[in-house]
Write a protein that binds this DNA or RNA. Structure first.
Lengths: 233, 233
DNA sequence: CTTTAAAATTGACATATATCAACATTAATT
DNA sequence: AATTAATGTTGATATATGTCAATTTTAAAG
C-alpha cells in the first residue's frame, strides 16, 4: 500500500497523524518533539515494543492498528487494548521504573513515532495543560483496566466474548461491519478464554444470528441481543 | 481502644501518621494541607468511601486497615488492595472525572485524613518532586492491577489463593503469623472465586500443612510450597 | 446468659471451561 | 501450481469451579 512517494513531510508541525495529546504543545515544544522523535513503519505481525525492555521513548501511533497486551503465564496473553490511530502510548513505566510493562504488536502495517522520554518528561514539567491531559489519558486507561478486570473475572464466556466484540464496535471501528483483522486467538486473549472456546462461542453467536463472520469481515446483526448477553454475563 | 485522651495534635506538622508522599511538602504547603484536611475515625466494617460518589478529597490512611475494592456484577467485589497505614489513596478519578472508582471499607478501626482535592492539585502543580512521587505511587498501583489481572485470569484456584495469602504476607503484614482479620469472603474477593471455594482451598492448604488458621491468626507453615503453588498456577 | 444474626463449613451436584487430537481451511512460500 | 505453514474448526473428554442446601461455629445483641 505504501510506496516511495507517500512519505510524510516528517515534521510534527502540521502533522495530520498527531495524537490529540500533542495538540496542546506550543510551537517551540513541538519543535523540540520534532527534533527528538523517530518515525518507524512496522509490517503487520511485527513487534513494536516488547514487555520488559528499557523505555527510552514514548509512542504515538500515526496509522495502522496494533494490539497492546500483557504477557502472562506460559505464553498466554491478556490484551489490554487495541490501539488505533491516532493514539498516544505511555504506560506505568514512565514514572515507575522506565520499563515497558506490555508488548505492542502491529495488526496492520503501522506507522509509529517514538518520542524521547526525557524530552517528553521535560515538556510535561513545563506545560500544565499537557500534563493534565496526559494524566487524563492515563487515568482513562486505568479505568478500562478496572473494567476489564471485573468483566474478565465475573462474567462467563458468552458475556466476555460479547464484551470483546462490543469493545471493537464501540471503541475501535464504530460501525456494524468491520474488517476481521483480529484473529480468533486475539479474540480469545481479549476475553480470557482458550481459542477453541472462542471459536465455539462465535459459532453459537452466528447460529443465533447475532453476527456474521465471512469474507474477512464481521457484521453485528443484533446489537441489542449482544448487549443483553454482555449485561447478563 | 481509643478514648477521649488519645486524640492526635491534629496538625500535619510533625504528624507521625503522614503517608510518605506528603514528606515531600515544604512547611508552607503542609500548612495549606493542614488547613484543608479533615480527620475522621471509622469503626471496623464502616464504609470510608463509596464507589461512584463525587471525589471532593483525596485520602491518607493514618492507622488501622482497610480494603479497597471494585464493585462488580450482582454485588460481587474484586479487592484491588489492602490499605495499610500510612498510605495515600488517590485514584483515576482525580484527573478523569472527579469520581471515586472503588469502594473503601475499614477492616479495623481506621483513622483517615481527607485532603481537599483542589488544594492537593494546586500543590501538585507547584511541587515537581511531589508530583513525581504521586505519579510513581499511581503507577505502582497500576502495575499491581496488571499483575492481578494476569493472575486472576490465568491461574486456577489454588494458585490464586496462594497469591492472595502471599500478598498479605509480603505486602501487608511482613511476618509468617498475622491476625486473621480478613474474612473468607474477603479472601474470595481477593482471589476471584466463590467463598465456598475459598473455604475448600484453605482447608486443603491446612491439610497439606502449608498453613494454619486458628485463634484468629494465620500462620504460614511452608512458604516455599505456597510459592511453588503460586508459580505453577 | 440467652437469643439472634452473621460467618464458616461441608458434600452433593450441575455446569462452565480447558484440553486434546484430529481435521479443514486459508494464507504464505517456493 | 505445489508445498508448507498458519489459522480455524470440531467433538469427545476430563476437570475446574460455582451453586445449593443443610449444618456448625462464631460473634453480636438484648
Amino acid at each position: 500500500m505504501s510506496n516511495f512517494f507517500d512519505k510524510e513531510p516528517q515534521s510534527c508541525h502540521g502533522c495530520a497523524c498527531m495524537s490529540s495529546l500533542f495538540c496542546l504543545l506550543n510551537p517551540d515544544e513541538l519543535t523540540l518533539v520534532d527534533a527528538n522523535k523517530i518515525n518507524v513503519n512496522f509490517k503487520a505481525g511485527e513487534t513494536i515494543k516488547k514487555q520488559g525492555t528499557y523505555m527510552s521513548h514514548v509512542l504515538s501511533v500515526n496509522s495502522g492498528l496494533a494490539k497492546l497486551y500483557l504477557e502472562g503465564i506460559e505464553g498466554r496473553s491478556a490484551i489490554l487494548r487495541i490501539v488505533k490511530p491516532t493514539s498516544f502510548i505511555g504506560g506505568p513505566g514512565i514514572y515507575f521504573d522506565q520499563r515497558h510493562h506490555f508488548t505492542i504488536t502491529a495488526l496492520l502495517d503501522t506507522s509509529v513515532c517514538f518520542i524521547d522520554l526525557q524530552v517528553f518528561k521535560d515538556i510535561l514539567k513545563g506545560n500544565q495543560a499537557f500534563a493534565e491531559e496526559f494524566l487524563k489519558d492515563f487515568s482513562r486507561h486505568v479505568l478500562t483496566v478496572y473494567n476489564r478486570l471485573i468483566y474478565l473475572t465475573q462474567k462467563q464466556m458468552p458475556g466476555r466474548m460479547a464484551d470483546a466484540i462490543l469493545y471493537l464496535h464501540d471503541e475501535i471501528f464504530n460501525q456494524a461491519i468491520f474488517p476481521m483483522i483480529i484473529s480468533r486467538s486475539d479474540l480469545a486473549d481479549l476475553s480470557a478464554m482458550s481459542k477453541e472456546s472462542a471459536v465455539k462461542i462465535l459459532r453459537d453467536f452466528q447460529k443465533e444470528n447475532l453476527l456474521r463472520i465471512s469474507d474477512h469481515e464481521l457484521e453485528i446483526l443484533d446489537e441489542e441481543a449482544l448487549r443483553k448477553i454482555s449485561h447478563i454475563g
